[in-house]
Amino acid sequence: MKRSVLLATLGGAVLAGGMASAATLDEVKARDVLNCGVNTGLAGFAAPDANGNWQGFDVAVCKALAAAVLGDATKVKYVPTTGQTRFTALSSGEVDVLARNSTWSFQRDTDLKLDFVATNYYDGQGFMVPRALGVTSATELDGATVCIQTGTTTELNLADWFRANNITYQPVNIDSNAEGEQQYLAGACDAYTTDASGLAATRAAFANPDDHIILPEIISKEPLAIAVRHGDNEWGDIVRWTFFALVAAEDYGITSANLEEQAANSQNPEVQRLLGKTDDLGAMIGLDADWAKRAIAASGNYGEIFNATIGEATPIKLNRGLNAQWTQGGLMYAPPFR
């Protein structure tokens, strides 16, 4: 009997996982709400505001997608996921899409059976230390205690980088950003390491952000990308091109302010195709002609989203850097809409 109980438990767990590769678009439409996996709370990227509404750079992707697919940017259920739970949540079908500071890596893309459809933030891993520590370079961290979130690429990079530089460290494993913040501020670790954007966002939430510095070393490539399950290519296409619509909109100067006017009057054929005036691209991905227009209307184009959530004018103060448009020397580059 014991064995069958075990099996039943296991089976139950797997059953709950459910069939994952059914047509996600149909499921989302039938449900009339998009389940979007976000992080548990990282200011600027995804965090509930004072009214309990989720806001942020990653959240904007969810909104644009819900607007494109369901016609309403508010029809999103935000599912907070930790570094440990996020991919299980996605592959089990608990969320339809994951927009959560997740690095696109070979193993995740292949072995974990995920598909990273587009990078929404090009990042790299950095270190934050209290200014009072007097450290100015990560290479001076020999012997330091470092807080690190488990289940992340950053925990592997950390091990690699310290070994490559022939210095040692003591990891303190934490489960979420909030826990890391608490440990770091209590001095239980000398340094906190994660994506540089995450560091900036974490620091912005401190009582005295100026008491902490982010060290100059960037020790890895962290293309933070939007992920869907492997196998449902139609859904993957929708997510990818919805994001590209936001990037292209910035490229062509379409903003939330001039969206209607551009849709009505633009003579640029690319803009006409993007906003559904000609060619009906939407039909090719199972949506209507106005899908991209609605996506852009949700929170503006990529640049507007960036500036409003994590840009220089916000407490997080990130500059565009690698995430500028390709015309400005950045990596944001939407393939042609045709």
């Binding site: 099996l7 039943a8 089976g11 139950g12 797997v14 059953l15 069939m19 994952a20 399950r229």
Partner: peptide
């Protein structure tokens, strides 16, 4: 038990 095992294997296969 057979149904659960079968289901598990099928779901794993479906996920690739």
């Amino acid at each position: 038990a057979a149904w659960l095992i079968n289901n598990t294997l099928e779901n794993l296969a479906a996920l690739g």
